[in-house]
Amino acid sequence: MQSISYKDSGVDIDEGNAFVEGIKPYVKATFDKNVIGGIGSFAGAYELPGGFKEPVILAATDGVGTKLRLAIDSDRLEGVGIDLVAMCVNDLICNFATPMFFLDYYASAKLDKYRAIRVVQGIAKGCEIAQCSLIGGETAEMPGMYQHKDFDLAGFAVGIAEKSDLQRQSNIKQGDVLIALQSSGIHSNGYSLVRKLLFEELKMKFEDQICGKTLIETLLTPTRIYVDDYKKIKNHINALAHITGGGIVENLPRVLPKDLRAQIDTKLIKTLPIFDILKLNLDEDEVYRVFNMGVGMIIVAPRTNLDYILKNTDGYEIGEIITAPCGVDLI
C-alpha cells in the first residue's frame, strides 16, 4: 500500500502553521495589560481587572449566520469578523458586563491562509472597537464536513460585572424612557429571509444601487459594536436590550419586569433604506419580528437621565414604560 499523508486527506498542517504566523501581528494589537503570555499556548491567560467588590464573570457565544453566505459568494470577508465580535460583546453589555477577552473558531473545508487571515483581521478589528483582547482561537480543516470555499465562524466573549449590577433591571419603573441606539444596518440576523426575498423573489443583484451604495455593500455592512456607548452611560441606565433575531418585540421584554410593558411609537424609529425595501415586500408584523428595523439597542432609563444619554450617544426617544403585563406595544 502506498504511503499517504494528512495532506492527501485534505488537511495541510504547514498551511495552518503559516496562518498562525500571518495573524500574529493583528492578534497582538488587541492585547491589553491584563493579557498574560503570547500566542501559541494551549490556553489564553488573562488577569482579572481590579476595582470590583463582588466580581462576576459572564460569557456569551454567537455566530454570524447566513450572512456568511453573502460574504463568501462576494469574496468580501473582512466585515464578518467584526460581526462575530459584535454579536457576542453586544450581548455581554446587556448584562452590564465589560468585555475582557474574545476567542474565535474558524472551520473550513480547506484552509486558505490568505482568506482566513482576512477574516481574523476583521475579528481583531472588532476586538479593538470592543476594547477587548483576542487571546485565542481554533482553526479546523474538515473536508468531510464543508465544501469548496465554505467556512463557518463561532465567537466566545468573556466579560466582568459587579454582582449588584446584574439586578439593575429591577429598578425599571413606570414612566422610564425608551431610547433607541441606531443600527448600522441589518446586522447579523434574518439573512435567510433577506436572501430569499431579494435574490430569489425580487431577482436583485449584488451590484444594484441603494442610495449610492451597492446592495452587497449594504447587506455586508458590519454589525455596530456598542461597547463604547455602554461605557459612557452605564451608570445612568436601568437596562439595555440588544435587538437581534426576534426584533424589538421579542428582545426588549427580556429585560423588563413581569408587570411592566414597553410602548413604542414606530413613527419615531429612524430606519434605513434597506428596511424600506423589506417593509414594502413583507408583512409589517414579520419585519418587526425578524429585523432590528434600524434600532440596534434599546436603553431603558429614568427620564431624569434622558438629556445625559442623548448628549453622550446618538440615541433618540422612541417610547416609555407603562404598567401592564410584560411585552411590547408598537403603535
Rank of each mutant, 00 (worst) to 15 (best):
V35A: 07
V287Q: 14
M145H: 12
G294K: 11
I248K: 04
D8C: 03
Y191V: 07
V177Q: 08
C94S: 15
S164N: 14
Q2W: 09
K232Q: 07
P55T: 13
E47N: 09
K232V: 09
I129T: 08
L202A: 06
E78F: 13
E207H: 12
D176W: 07
D152I: 08
K110V: 05
I322P: 02
N251E: 10
G22C: 05
F19D: 04
S133W: 02
V80L: 11
T304I: 15
I117F: 02
G159Y: 14
K196T: 11
A43V: 12
A18M: 09
E138R: 12
V255T: 08
L198F: 05
L272C: 05
A154H: 09
L260S: 08
L193P: 02
H187F: 10
L92I: 04
R76K: 14
Q2Y: 08
T313N: 09
Q263P: 01
S170D: 13
S9G: 08
L282R: 04
G136I: 00
G190K: 05
Y308S: 10
I299K: 07
N312T: 08
N281I: 03
D276H: 14
I322Q: 03
I57D: 12
S3P: 00
N189M: 05
P25G: 11
S108E: 03
G16M: 06
I13L: 14
L77D: 07
D165I: 10
A241N: 05
D75T: 07
A140R: 14
P302V: 01
Y191C: 00
H242A: 09
R261G: 01
F101T: 10
H242Y: 15
I216F: 00
R289M: 00
K279F: 00
K196V: 02
K205E: 02
K33F: 00
Q147K: 06
K67Y: 00
T313V: 15
K24M: 09
M297Q: 09
A239R: 06
A124M: 01
G65A: 01
K234S: 12
G38Q: 14
E286Q: 11
S188E: 01
G50E: 05
H242M: 09
A116Q: 01
V158L: 15
K270I: 03
Y288T: 02
